[in-house]
Design a protein around this nucleic acid. Structure first.
Lengths: 206, 206
DNA sequence: ATGTTTTAACCAAATGGTTGAATATATATT
DNA sequence: AATATATATTCAACCATTTGGTTAAAACAT
């Protein structure tokens, strides 16, 4: 545990992230991961361990990275409004850059976090805490009306994660019915962040 | 296909919904479904067919039911605001009553809808369409400001699905740290619907 | 007499996991 | 440079278990 990771281990975890995102835990096959990472299965076990250990490593990396990015960005900003913008912007951009983050996140939630290690739970708690504090601050300021911070959290997370993960379905839908095509359906991480904080801020401003 | 479903088939689909919700497609084992439904595996194959057919039946039922509930409720209401309230309320209550709806929905999205039959896709399209029309109507009325309907859709769906699916994680979190307990964390379908439409309407009212 | 369900056994394929020997790569020692 | 040492990686086979799927005959139910 927690030895510095070799380049090989790095590669394996990277590929594993993609495959877990595509297929879920049960759907992801160890052989497939080894193959796509271009290492022998024995190497995978030598470097990381069994499937559960691999998944743990992926979770720590994917969730940990995104969430610490977000918390950091929030701390950098001063007033509540820009903190919220930073929260949304960073979450959107960071999780779109690592396009396996969102599906893993969603699947993990969908399964009730059965396989979430405590470390990841604490990460998620920090995320919630950061936003809650910010909103409370804004309420005390009088900038925000008295809203339920938890639902604001759900809205932000939900909108961003769903929008990102949704993409293949949107594509398929548009291919099947080109007449419903709408440029709003395909925005970059930055653009969608704007959409989300425009709505969110309007929802909570007093 | 589409013969009237026997009571046994009904029961099997019901149980299968729960297990697919808990474990996902790959995680759900046919033997486990048969066992919990208290039928022999042979009966399952006799009544429904293979695993894929079973999952199809589940999807059609779960998504179809929820979505048609929502669309119906929207049609019943007159003005845009109450249409949106109805949309949110029905989605929340209906998907909480069938507490397997949300996880299946989320997982399906997370996997890019690979296994979504076209019928389900059309259902989802209708959902999106109903909301889009309503918002457009409100914008034309001058009641709503010019917002991106698709992101409103993502916010609503995201908030409701995440909130519901989230519950076990919230419980676990509160058990681990009782000091962070907050009654806002545990609301009924009705109450959470209120929270959501309060936020959503504030977000889009002009 | 017809449709339904159970029993219980069976099978092929896939899967997670392991191992030992061989090979390669780098690092340190002489 | 040459050698020795330790670490990484591959290869290839192997294994126990699980899993989806099937089936034939018997028992139930209507």
């Amino acid at each position: 545990m927690s030895r510095e990771i070799s380049a090989t281990a790095e590669k394996i975890i990277q590929i594993a992230s993609e495959i877990f995102a595509e297929q879920g835990y049960e759907g992801a096959k160890v052989d497939a991961i080894a193959k796509r990472a271009k290492v022998n299965k024995a190497t995978l076990y030598y470097q990381i361990g069994d499937k559960a250990a691999l998944y743990s490593a992926v979770l720590d990396r994917v969730l940990g990275q995104t969430i610490s990015d977000v918390c950091h960005a929030v701390k950098e900003s001063a007033d509540p409004e820009s903190k919220i913008k930073a929260f949304i912007h960073t979450l959107s951009v960071s999780s779109q850059a690592m396009n396996f983050t969102a599906p893993i996140f969603l699947r993990e939630i969908a399964s009730g976090g059965k396989t979430l290690p405590d470390s990841a739970l604490q990460h998620m708690g920090k995320l919630l805490g950061a936003l809650g504090d910010t909103i409370q601050q804004g309420i005390d300021n009088g900038q925000f009306r008295k809203v339920n911070p938890f639902f604001v959290h759900m809205m932000i997370l939900g909108a961003i994660l769903l929008y990102q993960t949704n993409e293949p379905i949107r594509r398929r839908n548009v291919e099947a019915h080109p007449e419903i095509y709408n440029p709003d359906y395909f925005l970059s991480g930055e653009e969608s962040a704007e959409q989300v904080w425009d709505l969110v801020l309007a929802a909570i401003r007093s």
